[in-house]
Amino acid sequence: MTRQFLRCFSTAVRLHAKVVPNNLKGKSKSSQEWLTRQLSDPYVEKAKIMNYRCRSAFKLLEIDDKYKIMKPGDVVIDCGAAPGSWTQIAATRTNASGAKSHLPKGTVVSVDVLQFHPVAGAITLGGMDFTLPTAQEKIRSILAGKQINCVLSDMAPNATGVRLLDQENITRFCYSVLKFAVSMAAANSNLVVKVWDNAEVPKLEADMLRFYDNVKRIKPRSSRSNSSEFFLLGRGFKGTEKTGN
């Protein structure tokens, strides 16, 4: 075997090996399990190497690489943005920083109820609850009449431990994002929302189909296999329905 092959093999084994943390004393069982998952997760290490703020960056990268939901010059809203990894991807894909002078410059507005460090090229609204009218009015004011090409939502509620309540809460978040997206969507715009599998998902899909040409369930490879999360992708905004007299 060559030395290069041995180095690659060694790195792969290290990234995929299960790591047991040594600082678990006094931590709850759920905290211990989370730490163990983080240390054993190859996407966590990969995010550090590629300077992404967290592993969730790879979920959006996979979605955009396959479905091309963002392009230079686009206006993108990132809901539930903290710590900012999706905003990093959106800012790069839309050329929001203007780093590529030969391409159109996009606009990215990211919002989260938590405070988080700004992302180069993006407008960051930390400490702001997207679901509140005040936050949505702030975004409208920033855009000053611009229509939105893509709305992203990786929002999830704090877990209560009550499965049905948690599912109800994340579905409520999805509807809040959908209503906002529809109100400001440009023609053929796109929407991505995170959801946890539950009985209300088919209705949410049907409601999205009222406004988008197609709606697809996506489970990125970087989503943990034991997680019930997946994403609904709505592509091709076709306008709002008109009711007759």
Rank of each mutant, 00 (worst) to 15 (best):
P157R: 10
K68T: 09
T124Q: 08
D166S: 06
V151G: 04
W86K: 02
Y67L: 12
L164D: 13
G126M: 09
A135V: 05
P72N: 05
K68V: 06
T134W: 01
E62W: 09
G126H: 06
D74V: 02
K66N: 12
A90E: 03
R93L: 14
A144E: 13
G80L: 10
F58N: 01
M128D: 04
H117D: 14
S153Y: 05
T87L: 11
A122W: 01
V76P: 02
S101C: 01
G127A: 15
Q115L: 07
M155L: 12
K105D: 01
I139Y: 08
K68H: 15
G84T: 04
L39I: 00
T134S: 14
D112E: 11
G161P: 07
K68W: 01
L125N: 04
T160P: 11
G80W: 03
I49N: 12
T92Y: 11
R93S: 06
I69Y: 03
Q167C: 13
V151Y: 05
R55V: 08
V113E: 05
L39K: 14
I89R: 00
F116A: 06
T131C: 13
K146R: 15
N149F: 02
C79W: 00
M155S: 02
L103A: 10
P42D: 02
A96L: 12
C150F: 11
R55K: 11
D74H: 15
D166Q: 09
I89L: 08
F58V: 03
G73R: 05
L143Q: 12
D154Q: 03
C79Q: 00
S110R: 06
A99L: 07
C174I: 08
S85F: 01
L103R: 09
K71P: 00
M128L: 15
P83I: 04
A82E: 04
S56P: 05
R37H: 12
D74P: 03
A81L: 07
V119A: 10
I142Y: 12
N158E: 14
R172A: 12
S101N: 07
R140I: 10
L132H: 13
L39F: 07
H102E: 14
G145I: 04
Q167A: 13
P157M: 10
T87M: 10
P104D: 08
L114A: 14
E168L: 12
S101H: 12
T87C: 14
G84M: 09
S85R: 02
D41C: 07
A159I: 15
A82M: 02
F130P: 05
I49A: 15
G121I: 00
I170E: 11
S40G: 08
F116R: 04
Y67C: 01
T131L: 14
G121S: 07
E62S: 13
G126D: 10
